[in-house]
């Protein structure tokens, strides 16, 4: 067993290895002692922008669908994961049982650049504060600028061995709560998470790539989600779509793969009104390949039929837990752009 593999187990803090019984990346493991999502709980901001250390797993997940000054499509990802090894809140400094992991990526039509960082909680190397909002690990950060309000404006920075980026994001619409007021069910067994998004960012900034810097503009989508056992033990992975449609609407649709596929989603109007979608509303059809590089997404009730194509099929996250994540182009009854995430497939 090499050090990388070992670290995967370590960071996720779960020794039933990921991909085995515990669902993808251990997200189906036991929850003993951890807090559980509660449908009766009202999300309160900006408090809930910060970390919820009594939950086992949490993430701040930003994806940006970009177009360069050179007319080409780009994508950028900034993700911070928090994992609690124990629900205990005792301990200070090195003994705080929290572990952080972060992924950053830039996708171009020809290349995909990835970086990964790890940190222990308790010493300040990584963390999240809600007022003013700041999420960071090492020199990577996503934070509200001076005088920012909640998540309305963000600056996002990350840097890897062969790439870096700096983006500014400004929200043009409200926060969106998924499911039942932010309580999002993930499986037939009732596994759930708290889940909200800010899908209305306009972004601009600069990507630094081996071939040179490129100025970019586009849309970004921020996901906030926390839980203690979001997946059923039998659920092996998921396919997640987030689209910025050219008619101003946003669409999130996801399928958790298990014994029975479980679908959920949100169709969001330009003013932020949400229609919650379930398995009766959404039809997802994968194209060829593992993982599939093209999809059709249909909402028959809405008359929506979308064809989805990866900008760069090689958008593999070669991180300690590998998965596929990259920008996509949307055509069909309405055009648009977006991001696709596919986990739990055999990737090398």
């Amino acid at each position: 067993m090499n050090a990388r593999r070992w670290l995967v187990l370590l960071v996720l803090g779960t020794l039933p290895a990921w991909g085995q019984e515990g669902g993808f990346a251990g997200l189906g493991s036991d929850v003993q002692g951890f807090a559980l999502p509660d449908p009766a709980r009202d999300l309160v901001f900006p408090r809930d922008h910060g970390a919820h250390e009594d939950f086992r797993i949490e993430w701040w997940y930003l994806t940006a669908s970009l177009r360069g000054a050179d007319g080409r499509d780009y994508g950028a990802q900034w993700t911070l994961f928090r994992s609690a090894l124990s629900p205990e809140k005792t301990g200070t400094g090195w003994s705080v049982p929290q572990v952080w992991m972060a992924h950053a990526a830039v996708t171009t039509p020809e290349s995909h650049h990835v970086a990964e960082r790890f940190a222990r909680g308790g010493i300040g190397q990584a963390g999240v504060t809600s007022e003013p909002f700041a999420a960071w690990i090492d020199d990577w950060s996503m934070r509200a600028p001076e005088g920012g309000d909640g998540l309305d404006r963000l600056t996002i920075d990350a840097r890897g061995g062969d790439f870096a980026y700096a983006l500014q994001a400004e929200a043009e619409g409200p926060l969106v709560l998924h499911g039942q007021g932010g309580y999002s069910v993930k499986g037939p067994g009732g596994q759930a998470s708290h889940y909200y998004s800010q899908p209305f960012y306009r972004v601009s900034g600069r990507l630094s790539l081996p071939e040179g810097a490129v100025e970019v503009t586009g849309h970004a989508w921020l996901d906030r989600e926390w839980s203690s056992q979001p997946l059923d033990r039998s659920q092996s992975g998921w396919d997640w779509f987030a689209f910025h449609l050219d008619n101003g609407r946003k669409l999130m649709a996801a399928r958790v793969r298990g014994a029975e596929p479980f679908l959920f989603g949100s169709l969001i109007d330009p003013d932020g009104r949400v229609r919650v979608l379930d398995g009766d509303d959404i039809a997802l059809r994968p194209g060829q390949g593992t993982p599939p590089m093209s999809w059709t997404v249909e909402l028959p009730g809405e008359g929506l039929a979308l064809a989805v194509e990866a900008v760069n099929p090689a958008s593999r996250m070669t991180t300690s837990v590998p998965y596929w994540e990259g920008p996509v182009r949307v055509t069909g009854s309405v055009t648009g752009r977006g991001y696709l995430e596919m986990t739990g497939y055999p990737l090398d």
């Binding site: 067993m1 050090a3 070992w6 187990l9 370590l10 803090g13 020794l15 090894l85 124990s86 301990g91 090195w94 003994s95 049982p97 572990v99 222990r120």
Partner: peptide
Amino acid sequence: AVAEGDLLAFITP
């Protein structure tokens, strides 16, 4: 050395 195994026990007193 690499400590393989129970990370929680490894880092907490």
